[in-house]
Design a protein around this nucleic acid. Sequence first.
RNA 1: GUGGGUGUCGCCUAGCGGUCUAAGGCGCCAGGUUGUGGCCCUGGAGAUCGGGGGUUCAAAUCCCCUCACCCACCCCA
Length: 418
Amino acid sequence: MPEYQAPRGMNDVLPEDEAVWRHIRDTAERVARLFDYHRIETPLVEEVGVFTHTAGEESDIVAKEMYAFDDRGGSTLALRPEGTAGVCRAYIEHGMASRPQPVRLFYFAPAFRYDRPQAGRYRQHWQFGVECIGDGSPAADLEVIELQRTLYEQLGLTDLVLRINSIGTAETRSTYRDVLRVHFAPHLETLSADSQRRYETNILRVLDSKEDAAHPAVQNAPNIRDYLSEQDGAHFDQVLALLDGLGVEYEVDPAIVRGLDYYARTVWEFQPRGAGGQSTVGAGGRYDGLIEMLGGKPTPGTGFATGIERIALEVDRTEPDLGTTAADVFTIPHGDDGPAAVLKLARELRAAGVAVHAGTPGRSMKAQLRAANASGARYAVIVGDDEAARGVAQLKPLLGSGAQREVALGEVVGAVEG
RNA sequence: GUGGGUGUCGCCUAGCGGUCUAAGGCGCCAGGUUGUGGCCCUGGAGAUCGGGGGUUCAAAUCCCCUCACCCACCCCA
């Protein structure tokens, strides 16, 4: 075993994986452009308050999963555990409130969470996310959901189910939590240990308990929809109506409650049909209070983030052949004078936009041709002493059954392109 | 963070107390005469069996600890 390994829960993306990653990244950026979203890159680290004040001190990603540290100047920084807070910080810092609203942004960046790794759950994982800031309407939620749905569709992930809910505002949730406490109090002793713990820490999650799913108190629990304010209820109804109008399938799922404080009103997840666990491919929600938490003026926002590794797991299954990259030309320098001539030829080819894989001098012709063949290049270009002296090259097609022919050095570019 | 499974050359796998000075396939390197590939043949390099400790006359094979991955929970991307 090597002395050093990648840190736990963090992975290398190797050249052979890169084809899938590039496909996902290119597709995501293309779809973002179709919706006129613009790329933003924020620092990998932020002052820790950016996350603690928005996600909430009690949230899992802050309380137990955040990589926080003091830098040499005494500032407490944190590796970003999610993308939204940093983007909103940038929105405020750069006065984006004075741009035409809403501001539409996307990012493709790594996030860090110190939790126990599993397939599809990593301490460093990559997210593609979009934020639509400055539009509080249900239409903005729909735009973001539609962007997300389009992305999955274009990636060939068709068997996903959209689960959606409304969790109201912070106030309605507070009220609802009180209602739940009163509701569950008499049943506390018959609930599982997990639920008893959640009763104290995050009572909304009692509703999501797998152990107690059949418990009468869970089944008869009050529905948060009954506690939404009139405006929140109307907002959610409009979101659902817009989804219906677009013909997007969804399930209203009261179990989706979101662990971050900044969420408000609409929240949703996309999951592979019939799967749970670490399989949520992407999730989003509205965060109307977030900008204010960061010291900005009250500004609505909505967005989603999707996990690249999790998409890659699905893409691997549905679309195994994404093609490999190969150079156009594989050079075979031979003899004493071949290498110098080949170097010059390679420069001309590259200047013309032809990708050249440089062969290794000093190996036998057979070894070099085997390598050329294995590389997948379309042509081998052989230059030995004889060719160098006469100013020619042997141009050998590798893919078909075409015959090798001799070409003047100056005409190789044309021959290869033609 | 809790419980469980797995861990043998770069990759996949055999071996499961002595015959292992650890075997095979893929891949890699070199050859199959003199400068020519894709198939085939031959040879070579490459692993102290995740790491450490212990039991035993003897351990890849048993026990303990540890690390990593995987599964369930938790939580989510």
